[in-house]
Design a protein around this nucleic acid. Structure first.
Length: 175
DNA sequence: AGAATGATCCTCT
DNA sequence: GAGGATCATTCTC
C-alpha cells in the first residue's frame, strides 16, 4: 500500500493522498489484532474478503481505517497511518481546522478526519468509488526508501516489526 | 523535546 | 466496568 493513492469522493468534494505509513495486524501470534480472539460485532469485516475497509471508532473521538488483506476467513488487515495530501487540500484544511499541510493527514485519526471517513465506510469496497485505492499520479515511486519498525501505541506483541513507512516523507506520525 | 492530561464512547468481558 | 491501533493542549525541563 505504501506509495499508492487513497481517494474519497464525497458530496463535499474529492480528497486524496499518497499512503506513506502503514501497520500490519496479522492472524498468527498477534494479540494486538482486534480479531485475535475471534469474530465480534466490531471486527467482522476483517473476516471478509480482501480489498474491503475495516473502520473502527477509538478513544471516543477518532476513526481508524484498515484495508483487509487476506482471503476470506483469515482476519488480517493493514492500518493506514499517514498520507501526503494530493487532492482536496482546502477541504482537508476545513475538516481538520488546521492549516499546515504536513499535519492534515499525519496519523490514523487525523487522516480519517481529513478524508471524511467514518463508520459509514466500514466494510466498503476499496477497489471502487467512493472510497478506493489507486495508483499515485505519475505511478508508484520505486525509489523512495522504506523503513520497517515496530507498531505505534501497541502493547501486546510489542517487539514485532510490522510497521512500514517512507523514510523521506514529512507525513509520518512517529520516527 | 518529552510527559501528562482530558476529551469521551464503543466494545468486549 | 475497564481499557483502547488517538490527538491537541498544557506543563516542565
Amino acid at each position: 500500500l505504501l506509495g499508492k493513492l487513497l481517494v474519497h469522493e464525497t458530496s463535499e468534494g474529492v480528497t486524496s493522498g499518497i499512503i506513506v505509513e502503514a501497520e500490519a495486524y496479522v492472524s498468527r501470534n498477534d494479540p494486538a489484532n482486534h480479531a485475535s480472539r475471534g469474530r465480534t460485532g466490531r471486527n467482522w469485516p476483517m473476516f471478509g474478503p480482501p480489498g474491503f475497509a475495516y473502520v473502527y471508532f477509538i478513544y471516543g473521538f477518532y476513526h481508524c481505517l484498515n484495508a483487509v488483506c487476506e482471503r476470506e476467513g483469515v482476519p488480517e488487515a493493514v492500518l493506514i497511518r499517514g498520507l501526503e495530501p494530493v487532492e482536496g487540500i482546502e477541504l482537508m484544511r476545513r475538516r481538520r481546522g488546521v492549516a499546515k499541510l504536513r499535519d492534515l493527514a499525519r496519523g490514523p485519526g487525523r487522516l480519517t478526519v481529513a478524508m471524511g471517513i467514518t463508520l459509514e465506510q466500514n466494510a466498503s469496497d476499496l477497489t471502487t468509488p467512493p472510497l478506493y485505492l489507486a495508483e499515485a499520479p505519475g505511478g508508484l515511486d520505486q525509489h523512495r526508501p522504506v523503513v520497517r519498525t515496530t507498531r505505534v501505541g501497541v502493547v501486546a506483541a510489542k517487539g514485532r516489526k510490522l510497521r512500514w513507512y517512507l523514510a523521506d516523507s514529512e507525513c509520518v506520525s512517529k520516527r
